[in-house]
Design a protein around this nucleic acid. Structure first.
Length: 474
RNA sequence: GGCCCGUUGGUCAAAUGGUUAAGACACGGCCCUUUCACGGCUGAGAUAGGGGUUCGAUCCCCCUACGGGUCACCA
């Protein structure tokens, strides 16, 4: 049974990198009919932010990454918040001490700081490793602060990563890391190992910044006599400055992206493609589709850069894929803010704008000409392909006016027929008439639909009025 | 600085010991004779450098350069 877990620490909002890690964990679980778990790693009480924990739940919910076990919903291996598991860690650390794989350390901060070299780098000198049993007992009983450190053996440690392959690190590179902090809480590394084992996690998916600390994990698993999970380290995500994506570099959080109008589906889809690619050339996927095709073996080793432009394109793709009624609802507030004309068919406007926008909020400005004709330059009447210019436009509008004034059939077809025949009998091409009409009616270089549709939307009176205005301008 | 990892067009990215080295975003052009958009077509644009191994390297090995990560009682 595949069991994966997303294990964030509640210190801030999720960004695209966090989301992508969660997504891959989720996909590996779903693809293998396994279980996806959420575990909150709040062992650093000084950095804990309560709202951040809620934000994590909210973001996972909005993006559809539903977990099977975790805070709020429980499961057989709870609790799923590390601070609530505090009592579980110390016994394991003590068993390591008994086996001689860890030891108590009573060194104070000042002494430790004194170990630093000129670059500020330090490695613990095992000062407390030499303490004998009575000494340790006495210090412990006196109630002074202590930590428990892992004793790193000599040699080299090699582990296998599903993405990066075999990685070997000389144990001399590793410090006797702290397992239990002086406040009694486990460190991240230790809690991680203990909980992953307790929760029977099979795949550990995380950013490649953990690559060099993984040998410490392996040593811990060996010392504890536990089976090592599969490691899947992900290539880092960079921002356009080439730095690791993070909040402190001002990179957008998921809530911010949502706020900007990106659809959760688009964000998920884009995150999936950052560092992973399907075997075919498809790029637009729903989460459900990803669940079927995701393969960790197609994960890349090299870092990738977050590109807002491509995300924007992706968003437009997902907007186009939305059922019209869903998009209409999404666009309604923007449409209403932009068009107040009585009798407006907002669903129709939504349908016209849906394939043309990258964000729902962009709908408004596409149709803002409906309420009020913007002031425009007569150069808009010039278009070389349509072979029009202000002079021809003037003639065209006159033709249009006489043709439309008596027109009773004010429908798309009726308008089209009337305009076409009027154009023909006056020696003008369709485009030479339609282009000026569209310009006179909208005053804009681009509109979400053609001239006849605009005539329909505006109604006969307003249409004639705007054509006359155009004529006056010319 | 030590250690670890990486390097295919501006970005994402496929592929392979022998190919004209895919595709997508962005960009340019054209077409769609109702614009823009959509769509279609098309253009420019890449295997970091140097050595090997090999009949042949983008691919395997080594070195260099560059980039990133990591070296906490943070996660």
């Amino acid at each position: 049974m595949v069991r994966t877990r997303y294990a964030p620490s509640p210190t801030g909002f999720m960004h695209i990198g966090n989301l992508r890690t969660a997504l891959y964990e989720y996909l590996i679980a779903r693809k293998n009919k396994g279980v996806f778990i959420l575990r909150i790693e709040d062992t650093d009480q000084s950095r804990y932010v309560e709202s951040a924990e809620d934000a994590i739940y909210e973001t996972l919910k909005l993006t559809g990454l539903t977990f099977d076990e975790g805070p709020g919903i429980g499961g057989d291996f709870g609790p799923y918040v590390q601070s609530q598991r505090k009592a579980d860690y110390l016994p394991h650390a003590q068993s390591l001490v008994e086996k001689g794989k860890a030891y108590y350390c009573f060194c104070e901060k000042e002494r430790l700081d004194g170990l630093a070299d000129e670059r500020g780098l330090k490695k613990y000198d095992r000062h407390c490793l030499g303490l004998d049993a009575p000494e340790i007992r006495q210090k412990l009983e006196s109630g002074g602060a202590y930590v428990i450190r892992q004793l790193i053996p000599d040699g080299k440690t090699t582990f296998h990563d599903e993405v990066f392959g075999e990685i070997t690190i000389d144990n001399q590179e590793m410090e006797d890391q702290i397992l239990i902090k002086s406040d009694g809480m486990p460190t991240y590394n230790f809690a991680n190992v203990v909980d992953d084992h307790a929760m029977k996690i099979t795949h550990v998916v995380r950013g490649s910044e953990y690559l060099t600390s993984t040998p410490k994990y392996k040593l811990l698993y060996e010392a504890l006599g536990w089976e090592l999970p599969l490691y899947v380290h992900l290539p880092l995500l960079q921002n356009t400055e080439g730095r690791k994506i993070s909040k402190r570099h001002g990179d957008a959080s998921i809530p911010q992206l949502l706020e900007m109008g990106f659809l959760p589906e688009a964000i998920i889809n884009y995150a999936a493609l950052l560092g992973w690619s399907p075997t075919d050339n498809r790029e637009v996927f729903t989460l459900a589709e990803l669940e079927n095709i995701f393969e960790p073996k197609n994960i890349s080793k090299s870092p990738s850069t977050f590109d807002m432009k491509k995300l924007t394109w992706m968003n437009a793709e997902h907007i186009k894929a939305l059922p019209p009624e869903v998009f209409a609802e999404m666009a309604l507030p923007y449409l209403q803010a932009s068009v107040a004309k009585p009798g407006t068919d907002y669903a129709y406007l939504a349908k016209l704008t849906q394939p043309r926008v990258s964000f729902a909020k962009d709908c408004g400005e596409l149709v803002d000409f409906i309420d009020a004709l913007p002031d425009y330059d007569i150069e808009l009447y010039t278009h070389k392909k349509m072979k029009t210019n202000p002079e021809i436009a003037k003639q065209a509008l006159e033709v249009a006016l006489t043709a439309l004034k008596p027109l009773a059939d004010w429908t798309h077809d009726g308008l089209g027929a009337a305009i076409t025949s009027a154009a023909e009998s006056n020696g003008l091409s369709k485009g030479q008439v339609l282009w000026p009409i569209r310009t006179a009616l909208s005053g804009k270089p681009t509109t979400p639909c053609g001239a006849t549709e605009i005539c329909e939307i505006l109604g006969k009176d307003e249409t004639l009025c705007r054509i006359e205005k155009g004529l006056k301008k010319l």
